[in-house]
């Protein structure tokens, strides 16, 4: 029987990265080429670490000529995202196509619906002169109280205003913004189907398990090669695969709202290296006491943190569930 290892900060460090990569690429070939009978893979590339590693893995699994990188900017995207995506594709000799989804989003009234809700909170908000973003109140993760969402607007002079978001405005802003991920998913499937390829999804373990993805948006894909990897492990793979340093060094952002917003401030509330190790402790049944001792925290705070993790996992189960169809069985 396996002895559970004593909790430590380096439990999740990958020791043999090459064999991890070989396992992933071998399974990608099995799933996509043999089981799905598709000829290659389409990856939406954003200049972020996750999609970059997925593109590199796909190129290694299928050969660079059997991978298409799709760059899908819209009017709120940072220009840096596109530049980095191009740099990445060049590095791995992968062909790219650029699809600007601004027109599609305008057609869905994505921006209009979002701005309408923002204006209900801040009547002075003008999307032409203000930037906006949603954030969470930062003090929450070690507390028993769940986080609340805040809306921030920033004017041309950089003056920032924040307000707690009420439910209807929060839901409308999120629902409108989710058109972005769902439009991207549609474009990816267009290219995948027209090439007889599979869509390679880019969410990592945290995004999957904590529900930081859009159902049928970035959560819509045929395979998710890094779906079981912690963020710090994704970085280990990125280094090994020689993803450009400009991508590795970039702070992960949502690139969803007009104001710059890190993933940490929007969702995770903890730096990735800490999130990884706490999550490992939580999901592997280490007690708050065992984890607190190693992390220099109090047991009470780690207990609250684990409860937060549990709540996050439970409340996002719906996102991970396929449609339920067992309503009536004809015998």
């Amino acid at each position: 029987m396996d002895q559970k290892r004593a909790f430590s900060k380096d439990l999740i460090v990958l020791r043999d990265i090459e064999s991890v990569i070989n396992n992933i690429t071998e399974k990608l070939r099995q799933d996509v080429l043999i089981d799905f009978k598709r000829s290659g893979g389409v990856v939406g590339i954003s200049g972020g670490i996750d999609s970059s590693v997925c593109l590199a893995l796909a190129a290694k699994a299928f050969g660079h000529e059997k991978v298409l990188g799709v760059i899908m900017p819209e009017k709120d995207s940072s220009p840096e995202s596109e530049e980095l995506a191009i740099e990445l594709a060049k590095k791995f000799k992968v062909k790219t196509v650029k699809e600007d989804i601004t027109g599609a989003l305008t057609g869905f009234r994505c921006y209009e619906r979002r701005d309408e809700a923002v204006k209900r909170v801040f009547p002075e908000y003008d999307p032409n002169t203000y930037k906006m973003k949603i954030g969470i109140r930062q003090s929450g993760l070690f507390s028993n109280l769940p986080p609340v969402f805040t809306l921030t607007i920033i004017d041309k002079e950089g003056k920032q205003q924040d307000k707690i978001l009420h439910i209807s405005e929060y839901l409308q802003i999120v629902a409108a913004s989710n058109f972005k991920q769902r439009s991207r998913m549609s474009i990816l499937y267009y290219h995948a189907e027209s090439l007889h390829y599979a869509v390679i999804g880019t969410p990592n373990k945290h995004e999957q398990e904590q529900g930081f993805f859009v159902k049928y948006g970035d959560g819509g894909a045929d395979v998710m090669p890094i779906g079981n990897l912690y963020k710090s492990q994704v970085y280990q793979l990125a280094e090994y695969l020689e993803v450009p340093a400009s991508i590795i060094e970039r702070t992960p952002t949502t690139d969803t709202y007009t104001a710059v917003q890190t993933q940490e401030e929007f969702f995770y509330q903890l730096p990735f290296n800490l999130m990884d190790i706490y999550w490992y402790g939580y999901e592997n049944g280490y007690t708050p006491g065992e984890v607190a001792g190693v992390m220099g925290e109090t047991e009470t705070r780690v207990e609250a943190l684990f409860k937060n993790f549990e709540r996050k996992r439970r409340t996002t189960d719906y996102l991970r569930m396929p449609p339920i169809r067992e309503y009536y069985r004809f015998m």
Binding site: L145, P146, P147, V148, F149, H166, R311, T315
Partner: peptide, 27 residues
């Protein structure tokens, strides 16, 4: 959960005519 908390705040504000500030959001 967090959505439940936001709904609770909205309920309190609408039913008791109070305004919740950032500093009120403590356990």
């Amino acid at each position: 959960d967090s959505m439940g908390f936001v709904l609770l705040i909205t309920f309190l504000e609408e039913n008791f005519n109070i305004k919740t500030n950032d500093s009120d959001l403590v356990e």
